[in-house]
Design a protein around this nucleic acid. Structure first.
Lengths: 132, 132, 132, 132
DNA sequence: GTGGTCTAGACCACG
DNA sequence: GTGGTCTAGACCACA
């Protein structure tokens, strides 16, 4: 699993790590049961603090996306093929964030049709994982 | 313009104010030239400090969404009818944020079709403003 | 004397009026003894408050650029042909402001040669007045 | 980086701080990657509130002159050696401010030749940084 | 009336 | 350690 970070970004590093992991899973690059790099390994690769990676993994654990075992380290727990019912609370909060994002694009002059194209394109990159 | 805040949320208050204003403009509730409440008025309404509102307005000003006059206060400057060219840098950054959001939904098991339905529904609430 | 204002600018209106008058005099459009529009006239033309124009004229008076008589109104008092000695205090303060302006251009990547070209060009538009 | 302020000046303190930083960078005293003092450190040195320094740094960040990291604080991001293309909008606004400044000098009787000498002298103090 | 500036101090997030 | 957020209140500038 290759992750890329931007240490200059104003997005917190732990958030970036978490985001990249989510994207990798969505793209099908990592599936249920697959192991994640060890926190120390990742921290060394990126040259960031060990606690920072830890925080990212803890976030993912709280979201139910990964499981952390003392022995085997972190493994992917949730992916798009799991078939579990979608959490209503998640959808509500997610939709709220989506509304803001779409509102921004609308105000900045992006046509609604183009917005949908962007969505479809991005979902397409995740679809590939679905077919596997 | 009616705005609602959640003072308990972990989203900064100034960010929430900014988000609500963007949504209102996207929904066509406020259009180019329409005045926004004065910072101190809005602060009093929400029971927050006027500096917090100030920061939200300053953010919107930096995004080119509102203009601030010493005399008449803040007025809407950008809406979906402006016909201005869309900033490429904005689209790139916006798409990156959209990717993360869509990846989250995918990982949590939301079907791609449902994601598109959510997008279309939300855009529909903005479309109303376009028809006016 | 034709003046143009930008009511949307973040530059105070009284400052803009003062700046435009200074530019007109520098360009030779108005010379020592020439009358300025009455404050009430200018206020009506621009649709701004009478006190705002008054403040601009007062600034110019303090700078020794115009004289204000109750009878004849405001008249230009200083122009580039006056031949009076240049005030040292003015030059020092002026140079400080110039330093900041030139530093900005330098940091933003404008070549020093281009800076000098800009200066020469602008001075050229004032030179025309000198020849008159 | 040594900066000097005039707390009695009518120029806002945060603006003075911003100006001094720009001058230091233009003079080559601080270059791309060099760290700036922490906001609270600088505030303590000047005897001003840290919010004031914060505002100055935020201004510089918006201008793309510095970058702010949560970890290492603020570092210089732009200097005259960067070789980036010059922003047209910046040049237009900058030239407008230059016009006013040159008009003032002209009206006050400074000869055009002397104005150019002042410009060349000041640019020379920045040139030193270029040669390094 | 409006927004802008500055101060002072508390608390949190990040690394 | 760093910066970010929020509060509270004072005073000034602008129109």
């Amino acid at each position: 699993m290759y992750l890329t970070l931007d240490l200059q970004s104003d997005v917190p590093i732990y958030q970036q790590i978490r985001d990249r992991v989510v994207e990798q899973i969505a793209m099908g690059e990592a599936r249920r049961g697959d192991p994640l790099p060890s926190t120390r390994q990742l921290a060394a690769d990126f040259g960031v603090n060990f606690h920072t990676v830890n925080k990212a993994y803890d976030l993912l654990r709280q979201e139910g996306i990964i499981r952390i075992n003392r022995k085997s380290g972190a493994v992917v727990h949730k992916d798009q093929h799991l078939g579990h019912p979608v959490d209503d609370a998640f959808v509500r909060a997610w939709r709220d964030r989506l509304r803001v994002l779409l509102a921004e694009a609308t105000v900045q002059g992006v046509h609604h049709q183009d917005v949908l194209v962007h969505c479809a394109e991005l979902l397409g990159t995740f679809k590939a994982g679905e077919d596997t």
